[in-house]
Design a protein around this nucleic acid. Structure first.
Length: 883
RNA sequence: GCCCGGGUGGCGGAAUGGGUAGACGCGGACGACUUAAAAUCGUCUGGCCUUAGUGCCGUGCAGGUUCGAGUCCUGCCCCGGGCACCA
């Protein structure tokens, strides 16, 4: 039999399942290793080849660590609440539960066909009542600690879709799906007080073994700013005047504050606006409300605003300064009001120039005729601060403000509280009851889970912006068990993030009926030692999960401050497609379209346009299979328009581009082992890499070579080769030792591409020079192959005479003394250029090396009689002769 | 605009406490086996040179440090990603 993955792989997958080979059992006598993938959302499209990249990496680690004697927890589950199933339900009337179960079954089948060593007895589905019960339980805990509250906040309402969208579904003020406009309108929402944990979320990043860019993104998202809060009394209102509080990072520039700006939504705007200015202000406020978020950001170089007619007193010098409103001041950040220091802030400078407001220089170092100076320098025109450097001036001003009770040092964060409710059906219902008096009571723990009612129509309730659940009267209306009065349930559901905030904790104890997890399991398994997933979750999922984990820590439910000790982001697998452009902008199939080659197109702000007549066109993609490659020129041409030359593009895989590769097809053709190895071989895990069907051939050939080292398949029937017994030749033993050493190092560092390369070298060289392969070398090769290509390894292991799985065989040991005995290759350079090479024993002295180098005829010819000025000997590496 | 990554053969990529640039794989060329093809195996494969030499050039560009630079420093260019009025 030749190497036949289609026969070997299903057989071993069945064996692993039947024997529960990878079942993890809590065992405190063994060290644990918890290796976790970001669990997927089971979409209707099934897996694409990008998914298994991270899963393969964690599987290699899981299998390797088992062979290293670790008790490995390696689970898989489904983040199964979510929008696509609900959108599909709206369109087709199919219940999301049905879609979800179907998709999960497909995902499970695909994942199992990759041969991953998951402990399937721990499989989780976030939509299962047994799971959502505990998600709701956690909500109760958050509520008890005052971390969940309700507030009237603006949400993204999309009239076209008739639904409210989550922030992450809105891109540039338009819906991600369909590109429809989205407006903001206030609705009563559940909020989680993540801001209370801002400082700890920031500080605890320090000790995490995470990629630096991810930590940085989290730091910036939290956005800590040190400064001061300063209170400005509104002028002319006497002793009981209102005060406007501002936050500034530059209290040292207070003498330069020449006006104030409130956000248009600021509560004091209505009160302080003078009669004369009322109309102007009203008009401006209406205008900013109409302006979309997108416009507001796009025109940041233009400043707009309106004068309220009111003045404030600068507390440091009693100067009367005008109060303006402008949409460049954000209501939700700081106090929603600023003191404007046009001399030393670019935005204030631009605003002052636009409205002709005074600019005072209070920090030396710039030229205020040209631009604001935002750097540090000596304070001037600032009375008691004059002459002080910026840092000292800030400190002194803060002390002065505190002494005068006009303000105090303060810290502000960009991080906002987490909007936690969605006007959706397919999510966890809130375990609360709203009483008619507006108070809220919690559903008792023992009554959980609160499950979703059945529904036929999943459309949102358009008119009053309510979730579909609001229509289910017999579910919504309840009797309050405490008062006996009518009350109602919350029609909103939790966002998809809720389930993924704690799934890694359920994995450690998934059957527990008394608690979300047991203390014993948590003490043993947590934290997650290695967490692998896409960088797109850099802030949201990872920040939310860290937040919940810290709350669990405070309640005493977990013993570590952080859930994920080491984080690795796998890159994206890119697909190849071919691009051209056409002028059918409306996607009207009846319209006759003219296609354009990529060369005739330039990309402007509004999108692609033709070079000659500047006509707007649309980018189109042709799948690689629909393209004709011109052999002589190498040009790609469109199948239907052969005169059209296409440009090849490597991009994220998506249906619309026709560049999606289905793992099922790859497995059918080459097998799961080839697919696993190829994904690991194309480059470093963290980097994006293009998928190539040609490249996988090389991997397949390599696996065949491994097969043939053990199996003789030249005849009709395959026979296991009779391998040499005994230790084998020194060359073979040294090669083996070198390979084990390199492969071990590479796997530990997750450099799987170079690990595979070293195994290829071993297989290429092991029978060179006529040495017969020994049983020992073959077994060690198979063991090294086991984490990477487990099906082939199991098969060869059994053909080598073993009856048990190799999953728990010890990882091969290195014979260190063999590495020591190796000869060294020393490069001989003359003036830094390689001229010769010597093979010497490891213990050769520097002096001997120098003598041998000088004796080389090649060196002598390049020196052409000159005396060497200097000889540099780098032990074990090279000799450089300078002459 | 700001902040991260990253530019190495036809392609994916190796090599960074400075020390043989191009491991390994794809693609390509030639050869062996075969009636033939596929598969397999073997050899070669950065560029240049009518001196074919272990000759010269070569890791985005221009400089610098060093006996020696893909690796370190300075200044640019290009590509990818993130953030974007956060006071």
């Amino acid at each position: 039999m030749t190497y036949s993955p289609d026969e070997i792989e299903p057989r071993w997958q069945a064996y692993w399942l039947e024997n529960q080979t990878f079942r993890a059992v809590l065992d405190t006598t063994k060290p644990k290793y918890y290796v976790l993938d970001m669990f997927p959302y089971p979409s209707g499209d099934g897996l694409h080849v990008g998914h298994p990249e991270g899963f393969t990496a964690t599987d290699i680690l899981a299998r390797y660590k088992r062979m290293r004697g670790f008790n490995v927890l390696h689970p898989m589950g489904w983040d199964a609440f979510g929008l696509p199933a609900e959108q599909y339900a709206i369109k087709t009337g199919t219940h999301p539960r049905i879609t979800t179960q179907r998709n999960i079954a497909n995902f499970r089948r695909q994942i199992q066909s990759m041969g991953f060593s998951y402990d399937w007895s721990r499989e989780i589905d976030t939509t299962a009542p047994d799971y959502s019960r505990w998600t709701q339980w956690i909500f109760l805990k958050l509520h008890e600690r005052g971390l969940a509250y309700q507030a009237e906040v603006p949400v993204n309402w999309c009239p076209e879709l008739g639904t409210v969208l989550a922030n992450e579904e809105v891109i540039d003020g338009r819906s991600e799906v369909g590109g429809h406009p989205v407006t903001r309108l206030p609705l009563k929402q559940w909020m989680l007080r993540i801001t209370q944990y801002a400082e700890r979320l920031l500080d605890d990043l320090e000790d995490l073994d995470w990629p630096e860019p991810i930590k940085k993104m989290q730091r910036e998202w939290i956005g800590r700013s040190e400064g001061a809060r300063i209170r400005f009394p509104v002028a002319g209102k006497g002793a009981d005047a209102q005060q406007i509080e501002v936050f500034t990072t530059r209290p040292d520039t207070l003498f330069g504050a020449t006006y104030m700006v409130l956000a248009p939504e600021h509560p004091l705007v209505a009160e302080i606006t003078t009669a004369a200015q009322r109309e102007t202000v009203q008009t401006y406020i209406q205008r900013t409300q109409r302006r979309s978020e997108r416009d507001r950001m796009a025109d940041s170089s233009e400043k707009t605003g309106a004068f309220t007619g009111a003045f404030a007193t600068n507390p440091v010098n009693n100067a009367e300064i005008p109060i303006w409103i402008a949409d460049y001041v954000l209501a939700a950040y700081g106090t929603g009001a600023i003191m404007a220091v046009p001399g030393h802030d670019e935005r204030d400078y631009l605003f002052a120039k636009t409205f002709d407001l005074p600019i005072i220089e209070v920090v030396e170092g710039g030229n205020l005729e040209e631009a604001a100076y935002t750097g540090a320098g000596k304070a001037i025109n600032s009375s008691f601060l004059d002459g002080l450097e910026t840092a000292a001036a800030k400190k002194k001003m803060n002390e002065w403000l505190e002494a005068e009770k006009l303000g105090e040092a303060s810290i502000t964060y960009k991080l906002r509280d987490w909007l936690f409710s969605r006007q959706r059906y397919w999510g966890e219902p809130f375990p609360v009851i709203h009483r008619t008096d507006g108070s809220v009571s919690l559903v008792p723990e023992e009554d959980l889970p609160l499950t979703l009612p059945e529904l036929d129509d999943f459309k949102p309730t358009g008119e009053n912006f309510e979730a579909p659940l609001a229509r289910v009267t017999d579910w919504i209306e309840v009797t309050d068990p405490e008062t006996g009065k009518t009350a109602h349930r919350d029609p909103n559901t939790m966002p998809q993030w809720a389930g993924s905030c704690w799934y890694f904790l359920r994995f450690i104890d998934p059957e527990n009926q008394e608690a979300p997890w047991s203390e014993e399991a948590e003490r043993y398994w947590m934290p997650v030692d290695l967490y692998v997933g896409g960088a797109e979750h850099a802030v949201l999922h990872l920040l939310y999960a860290r937040f919940w984990h810290k709350v669990f820590f405070d309640i005493g439910l977990v013993h570590t401050r952080e859930p994920f000790q080491k984080l690795v982001n796998q890159g994206m697998i890119l697909g190849e497609s071919f691009r051209y452009y056409d002028d059918n902008l409306d996607d009207d199939p009846a319209m006759k379209a003219t296609p354009y080659p990529a060369q005739q197109i330039r990309i402007s702000n509004e999108g692609p346009r033709t070079v000659d007549d500047d006509r707007a066109v649309k980018a189109r993609w042709a799948a690689a299979s629909d393209v004709i490659i011109d052999k002589s020129s190498g040009e790609a041409r469109h199948a239907r328009f052969p005169e059209l030359v296409l440009e090849s593009v490597m991009e994220k895989m998506s249906k619309s581009r026709g560049n999606v590769v289905n793992p099922d097809d790859v497995i059918n053709e080459f097998g799961a082992d080839s697919m696993r190895l190829y994904e690991m071989f194309i480059g470093p895990l963290e980097k994006d890499a293009p998928w190539s069907t040609d490249g996988i051939q090389g991997i397949y050939r390599f696996l065949q070579r491994c097969w043939r080292l053990v199996v003789d398949d030249s005849g009709e029937e395959s026979v296991n080769r009779s391998l040499a017994q005994g230790p084998g030749s020194d060359d073979q033993r040294r090669l083996l030792a070198r390979t084990i050493s390199g492969v071990t190092e590479d796997i530990e560092a997750m450099r799987f591409n170079t690990a595979i390369s070293k195994l290829m070298v071993f297989v290429r060289d092991v029978t060179r020079g006529g040495d017969e392969l020994t049983q020992d070398a073959a077994e060690k090769l198979v063991l090294m192959l086991a984490p990477l290509a487990p099906h082939l390894a199991e098969e060869l292991w059994s053909r080598l005479g073993h009856s048990e799985t190799l999953a728990y065989e010890p990882w091969p040991e290195i014979e260190l003394q063999l590495l020591e005995e190796e000869m060294l290759r020393i490069v001989i350079q003359v003036n830094g250029k390689k001229r010769d090479e010597l093979e010497v024993a490891k213990e050769t002295s520097d002096a001997d090396l120098e003598a041998m180098a000088l004796a080389s005829p090649r060196v002598q010819s390049h020196l052409s009689g000159r005396k060497p000025k200097k000889v540099i000997v780098v032990p074990g590496r090279l000799v450089n002769i300078v002459g």
